[in-house]
Design a protein around this nucleic acid. Structure first.
Length: 143
DNA sequence: GCCAACGTTGGC
DNA sequence: GCCAACGTTGGC
């Protein structure tokens, strides 16, 4: 299984809104960046992802799961843009801030630090485990 | 609200 | 195919 991170500005699409969608999930549309799109194309159903609030909060606030693999983005006719669907799985008991991520030497290589502007990022397994630990979540308990 | 970083566009 | 101009993202 692979791990990912999705960024969202909470006033555009928040974790609260994502959770309200429940099992149905939501199309992660509007991505117009090749690297982000390429990451989404590699996602498989069941992959887990961090949900990160940018601009406001600057926290990893929850865990989501890919519930539909990459398909054409319904918000554009431009065939270049695909996207996945994600659904909320659980809250991060203690949201992990960007500041904490930056301060943790184990996470110095994380995309959140090195590729600040990339909105859909891959997360390495050791980074996944570390951020879960910081957030007070046992990675093995995530269903 | 500012501005640095960086991705994209378009003229040549 | 280069690169300057421009637009957007996102931390501060």
């Amino acid at each position: 299984m692979a791990y990912w991170l999705f960024k969202s500005e909470p006033f555009k699409w928040s974790w609260e809104q994502q959770k309200a969608k429940g099992e149905e999930g939501e199309e992660w549309d509007g991505i117009r960046n090749y690297q982000a799109r390429n990451n989404m194309r590699q996602m498989k159903i069941g992959d887990k992802a961090f949900f990160y609030h940018s601009n406001e909060g600057l926290n990893v606030v929850g865990i989501a799961e890919i519930c539909r693999e990459s398909a054409p983005d319904s918000t554009t006719d431009d065939p270049r843009w695909d996207c996945v669907y994600i659904k909320a799985i659980c809250d991060m008991p203690n949201p992990v801030s960007l500041k904490e991520v930056k301060a943790n030497p184990k996470l110095s290589d994380m995309s959140l630090v090195t590729s600040m502007r990339l909105s859909v990022q891959p997360v390495k397994e050791n980074e996944w485990i570390e951020v879960c630990r910081m957030g007070g979540l046992d990675p093995n308990s995530i269903k």
